[in-house]
Design a protein around this nucleic acid. Structure first.
Lengths: 183, 183
DNA sequence: CAGTATGTACAGTTTATATTGTACGGTTTT
DNA sequence: AAAACCGTACAATATAAACTGTACATACTG
């Protein structure tokens, strides 16, 4: 039984690449390695198995797998007779992608909508102040216009999320079939 | 002239929010603050102006603005008679969004396509080894199948990028008009 | 009900990243 | 041609994030 190591080594190349990709989107290395490991693992995994295979601490596995869960890259699986929590990587990567970005974009929308409102309010209040100069007034109007434009962006993004979440995006960008992809 | 400070304070709320958003996608705080500052700034900015307004070092401005440039969130602007480099934030945020993600997704595709090929090759070679067990063989076939599925994902992603870059996405998810957005 | 197993909070440590300051090469100005 | 200016490389530092180990709460087992 010397091969498993070699298989793992082959896997490692892609796992590292996945890790780097996920780092691009702000996910930690441990999450990347964990996800990659789960990607190749046949059965749902326990925290202890993850610990063994990644060589990392149980705490990292616990927090990592929960984070991956909330991003919909991984999900809990229940198997009767098994007491430990089991997790497996989402099989459908396109779906994972879609959900991941919808989560991110939703966060973005919510976070910034709030901030825009506050900034707008503050700016409008300034317009009422007595000692405001004409330059400052135009400055404020410019800012408000910019924010109004920004809101259009967030409105669009909201629509985009809807298109992704509803699966409508696949009408316009269908998932290719095996045969349609040359190596 | 007491107000400018107050205007800046109002702006700061949204700038911080933008910074947080960009942090979500793996961009550094300084890049976030810089972009936010440029978002509100009327004219194209020099590195020195950025330094003043953000209160950060010139080095940060230099590296930051170049990084933002390569992500298409900011672009150089040339004005005759001005010796210093000038930069301004991309006005069209939807466009920025689209280009940003296309850059990211392209990186992802290229990075992983390479890795998948290598992993596939390594796994196929293992199939030829003499001392391979049946279990290991099925293991390898499982892995190869997973990778084949993964390639479908990247093929889809490539199509998605095309749809975004070509602007075709706006046929399906149009940018709303002012009137269509209630606060 | 004691004893064991499981997952997580939390503080501490390590590691990586972000940011700065100085120095330098290339350009323009005088 | 000297002087001033501008942007960036690079090393040093400050800051933040990732990661680990221990300890604990909860749930299960006998």
């Amino acid at each position: 039984m010397v091969l498993p190591t070699k298989i793992e080594e082959a896997r490692r190349v892609y796992i590292e690449s996945l890790t780097e990709t996920m780092a691009m989107y702000g996910l930690s290395p441990s999450m990347g390695r964990l996800y990659g490991t789960m990607f190749f693992h046949e059965d749902p995994m326990t925290l202890d198995e993850m610990m063994d295979l990644t060589g990392m601490s149980k705490t990292s596995m616990s927090t990592g797998v929960r984070a991956l869960s909330s991003l919909k890259l991984v999900h809990k699986k229940w198997l009767k007779g098994v007491r430990k929590d089991l997790y497996e990587a989402e099989h459908d990567q396109v779906r994972s992608f879609v959900e991941f970005f919808c989560v991110m974009w939703d966060k973005e929308i919510e976070l910034n909508a709030r901030a825009i409102s506050r900034t707008e309010d503050d700016l409008r209040k300034l317009l009422d102040e007595a000692d405001i100069t004409p330059e400052e007034t135009t400055m404020i109007y410019n800012d408000l216009e910019r924010l109004t434009k920004a809101k259009l962006y967030y409105a669009w993004l909201k629509e985009l999320v809807k298109t992704f979440e509803s699966g409508k995006i696949f009408e316009h960008v269908p998932v290719p079939k095996q045969e349609q992809v040359e190596d």
